[in-house]
Design a protein around this nucleic acid. Structure first.
Lengths: 231, 231
DNA sequence: CGCGTCCTTGAGAGTTGTCAACTCCAGTGG
DNA sequence: CCACTGGAGTTGACAACTCTCAAGGACGCG
């Protein structure tokens, strides 16, 4: 259950070099949203917004990747979600953003004024219903993630993560990781070292192959699936 | 951020002996839903529905408490949410339920036919918007829980849990725990023993007082808050 | 080519889990 | 009324998984 399969729609603009999202869209209302947005671009680690900011905008990723995160006073960090091309960010905000959002790599986004989105919601009744469904989906994704964080071992978490990324890429065997090991760790509730060790463990087992630190090839998807389910 | 402050509305029926939910409702559409429901009652550990069932009904807790849970093949269990009086269950289901739901104690609920709810959603446009907001709220609660499961220590988790329950009871210092230690453990991603140890630790510190295993009195709420935030 | 950042690897510590025994309490039946 | 029983909760000793700290290696960029 991919956290980043959520709130997905086709990017309105296709640029080369982007992860191409799996598309299962039959949308007709959502593209209309795009006309409300303006394109912005951010450098790696650039800030979309900070937790506590007035929630003026929401976004859609066009190319690159973004992450939502929260910080403890003592520096612990948790990443709630990764957003890949086609994903929406911040539609669920109320008055203020409840988390910060940053660019994982150089990233281009569509930025919408929430005020306009609200108006559009009133005009097009189908849009509200469609958003509701998308949020329901996000919720079930979040539940899956809670299961992962609450009850899965380190290996199970990484296996689940790889499978979700693969799924997101149309079940491709070759997946690229735009985010750092540290990002993955903070997303899975682990440390960088543990994530790295699990990767090499999978590599040693022959379950995966590492082209580079950011390029994984899944050699034994079945083994990964068993691992992810705790078999 | 209470997982069980979610999707709350005033119970349509007030029965003695129930936890009285904190009310912050100015709803007008949701009570109309109640007329669609029929009252049912379950014994402790009774089943509302099972993961994978066709999602025919949704529910609202009137008295008692319920839990949503998921199981691993090897017996590990995770509780996604507790539902106290006024909480809705299963509104976010799609075709099938994505988790099982059970009564924590003897419980009475309102059961709605999802088909009727759908129709009502179409008739009353305000209802869809209100549900959307509630689901957004649930989502932010889920994000809070992911933070807890991903990055908090055992003590921090239990402290957060007690505070949420207190909040839910109108910030009362005296809170009752309808669920078992095992339920709490599976909700917080811990074991029964760890939960128990943290309780006695807090008791020894003078942070809380245990009237019985199911009755907690918060003696030092400030200490709990600091602990929950990781200070 | 050198520097910095990220990743990997190792050794040891710590928090939480596991296993097992004991206590407490409620419900039951003599 | 009291002993028995079973489930839930507590406590202890030990193990295990993951974290922490530290060092070394790889890769990209200036």
């Amino acid at each position: 259950m991919p956290a980043f399969l959520t709130l997905k729609t086709a990017p309105s603009t296709r640029l080369p070099g982007s992860l191409s999202p799996a598309r299962s869209d039959t949308d007709d209302d959502l593209p209309a949203l795009d006309r409300l947005g303006t394109v912005i671009s951010l450098r790696r680690n650039g800030t979309l917004f900070v937790e506590g900011d007035a929630a003026r905008y929401c976004f859609k990723v066009l190319t690159g990747a973004a992450r939502s995160c929260r910080l403890f006073p003592d520096g612990r960090r948790h990443i709630g979600d990764f957003f890949l091309p086609g994903d929406f960010i911040g539609f669920d905000a109320q008055e203020q953003y409840r988390f910060s959002a940053e660019a994982v790599t150089d990233t281009t986004l569509l930025r919408y004024d929430r005020h306009n989105v609200e108006r559009m919601l009133l005009l097009r009744s189908g849009l509200g219903r469609r958003l509701l469904d998308r949020v329901y989906h996000r919720l079930s994704v979040a539940q899956e993630q809670m299961l992962l964080l609450g009850r899965k071992s380190a290996s199970e978490r990484v296996a689940s993560f790889l499978l979700v990324l693969s799924e997101r890429n149309g079940k491709a065997d070759r997946i690229s990781l735009p985010m750092s090991r540290g990002d993955i760790a903070d997303y899975l509730g682990l440390t960088v070292e543990t994530v790295s060790r699990v990767f090499t463990h999978f590599k040693t087992q022959g379950t995966i192959q590492l082209e580079s630190a950011a390029e994984v090839i899944i050699k034994d998807g079945h083994a990964l699936e068993n691992m992810a389910e705790g078999v």
